[in-house]
Design a binder for these strands. Sequence first.
DNA 1: TAGTGTGAATGGATTCACAGCC
DNA 2: GGCTGTGAATCCATTCACACTA
Lengths: 219, 219
Amino acid sequence: MKPGNIPVPAVRRLSLYLRQLDNLWRDDQRTISSRQLGDALKLTDAQVRKDLAYFGQFGQPGIGYNVEELIARIRGILGTDRMWNVLLVGAGHLGMALSAHRGFARKGFRVVAVFDDDKAKIGKRVPSLEGVTIQPVEEIARAVREKDIRLAIIAVPGEAAQGVTDRLLAAGVRGLLNFAPVSLDVDTAVAVSSVDLAVQLEQLSFQVGAAASLEDVKK
Amino acid sequence: MKPGNIPVPAVRRLSLYLRQLDNLWRDDQRTISSRQLGDALKLTDAQVRKDLAYFGQFGQPGIGYNVEELIARIRGILGTDRMWNVLLVGAGHLGMALSAHRGFARKGFRVVAVFDDDKAKIGKRVPSLEGVTIQPVEEIARAVREKDIRLAIIAVPGEAAQGVTDRLLAAGVRGLLNFAPVSLDVDTAVAVSSVDLAVQLEQLSFQVGAAASLEDVKK
DNA sequence: TAGTGTGAATGGATTCACAGCC
DNA sequence: GGCTGTGAATCCATTCACACTA
């Protein structure tokens, strides 16, 4: 099937398939069926097959999918078959944790520059990143240009997030991973992915609370 | 409308409405229409009205919604109108950043216990949390019992995540916020929310890459 | 006039079910 | 017999459009 109408949720699941396949590969599994893959992720086998079919014909009837090949294919689709230089704005606790995050490096994302507007932090080394020092946000445009940076991580307080965003867009960044608890106003050509940590807990609070309420009703 | 068929996406948006309303309140706005709220979050006005209508009739025709009241109502629905004691497993970079996260406290989530299986860390103070020291994971069940903990944050490496999960479930935890890059196997009665940081960047990589491919096609 | 709440219509995503292949 | 790829059927969320209210 040719592109043109790939459901967004399918792309999200693609990342999960890849993650699961990486784990299977490490456990020496060389082949897998849509059913097995679906079971592990709590999806139906049809869902898995349809998702993969949006991008091509990767499986073999009677056999399943070749794990190694499927990993390579999905990486190619997601664009993680190459390195991505990423910059980080915000050198607080969260920013520093992200700069040290092994998971990024494993997938080919390299944090190559870190920015903050706190004078006291500027010039300091980032412990987890060889040769990276904290720079003032005014230097963002230069870094984007010189280091071919397309993605940025925003780990600043909510009040500062839109200003940082404007600066990043002006510098030509193409995708934003936003941890600030605000809805960013961006040009439609830019990709934004937001993670609000408190919202995640809030959703759990709802689910746990709602379950409790249902039990109350039963009584 | 009575509960029974509330779309999951509607509940997710509820958190975003609340966040936006908090910001509006701080900016002294006392009333808001579904259109204004939708514009800020890039949703249609109909979407906003329908979402809110799942939970009750909060608006006034001709006027809109009272910001203060709506905040209170949504808090009540999400269950964040009270404090939640939360525990954290994993005292690495990410775990420590989460323990210091102001956003949790602001929403009423209090990290009251921290666990790790690294002998070198046990007994150490958690700098950002008054009176909290790192305990061995064996103490989880006791803490859950003594401190009425219902939610847990998992910030351990992938290999350790399922083991920690089993322990948390055995201790009676009701909701998990998982940062480990694995799909957890849990009882259906337990709520799980997963955040895979690398997956977020991967999705951006796809979007940025796909946009580039489309341009290539045009040429 | 401005704006909500909601049944009906639409549009998408998921699941079904089966032809075809190993 | 086991498993993929895919049209068709189903299910669910979003949008439309309008009666109704302040």
